[in-house]
């Protein structure tokens, strides 16, 4: 398309972005439409759950433990001589359950499995595998998108809960080994002012983050350019777009849920 003026350029780019948003919602709609067939593809779903969920645990283990340790050290530093030690556990628990756990897990997974999803689908498109599915009369949304969608929306919340636990353990380790706070103090602090909504809000958020990572990963995969550069760009774009959307959605959900 020939660009005539800066105004034309802005209009053209805006139209392009609106089309992309439309396509993202189409992908989501078509995937949800295939949902009644989910029980016929349990083997594919389990395979994706293992690949997305179980395989991410080692990475999440390290990041969560260290984040929990850092959060607790920072809380203790801010509270030192001002607030009783019990509140270190309270602050760490609230930080981790409401924000750190869900956001950290989503960002780590956007980098690890969101990019892998875009690369996999992009390379399948490049090698005409997506066309092969269509020609064989097989719906790509049912066989490719749906198992990944289900794996994302179940595994991201599950991993978030695991990450929450690991981060709290990290905080406890720091309290006992470095901060001279007893396990009992940390534990009672965690329970103090705890509201179940804080845990559920994190889980609800991570469900939405799972949808975001899946749909952006799939979108960038099917729209990947050709060759190694095209797939490389797609993986980079999905990480950037997912991280931005996760942070924006986090703000929106915080405003809605609290």
């Amino acid at each position: 398309m020939k660009i005539l003026s800066p105004v034309h350029y802005i209009g053209f780019k805006t139209f392009e972005k609106i089309s992309a948003v439309g396509e993202v919602f189409c992908i989501l709609g078509r995937t949800l439409k295939a949902l009644p067939h989910a029980h016929k593809n349990t083997d594919l779903i389990v395979k994706q759950m293992v690949s997305i969920g179980v395989s991410s645990i080692p990475l999440l283990f390290v990041t969560s433990i260290f984040t929990g340790m850092v959060a607790t050290i920072q809380a203790e530093f801010q509270f030192r001589d001002l607030v009783p030690d019990k509140f270190v556990g309270t602050a760490a628990c609230k930080m981790i359950l409401i924000e750190l756990g869900p956001i950290l897990t989503a960002l780590v997974l956007a980098g690890r499995v969101g990019s892998a999803l875009a690369a996999e689908i992009g390379s399948m498109r490049e090698k005409e595998e997506l066309d092969a599915y269509t020609v064989l009369g097989l719906d790509t949304y049912r066989y490719l998108a749906l198992p990944r969608f289900i794996a994302f929306v179940t595994m991201v919340p599950s991993l978030t809960i695991i990450s929450n636990c690991l981060a709290l353990i990290g905080g406890w380790i720091v309290c006992v080994l470095a901060l001279d706070i007893t396990s009992y103090t940390y534990y009672t602090g965690m329970q103090y002012l705890f509201q179940p909504m804080e845990l559920w809000a994190g889980v609800i958020k991570s469900f939405v983050f799972g949808v975001i990572i899946f749909v952006l990963g799939y979108y960038h995969g099917v729209n990947a350019g050709s060759g190694a550069r095209g797939v490389g760009m797609a993986t980079m774009n999905v990480v950037v777009a997912s991280c931005l959307m996760i942070l924006i959605a986090d703000f929106a959900l915080a405003a809605i849920l609290f």
């Binding site: 005409e128 595998e129 020609v135």
Partner: peptide, 26 residues
């Protein structure tokens, strides 16, 4: 499409499945 088959330029085999699965899948 059930009346048609297509041989793609690079084969377009499903990489995650073995030969037998590729043939049996559809």
């Amino acid at each position: 499409r059930r009346k048609m088959g297509m041989l793609f330029q690079m084969g377009a085999l499903f990489d995650s499945m073995d030969t037998g699965e590729n043939i049996a899948f559809a």
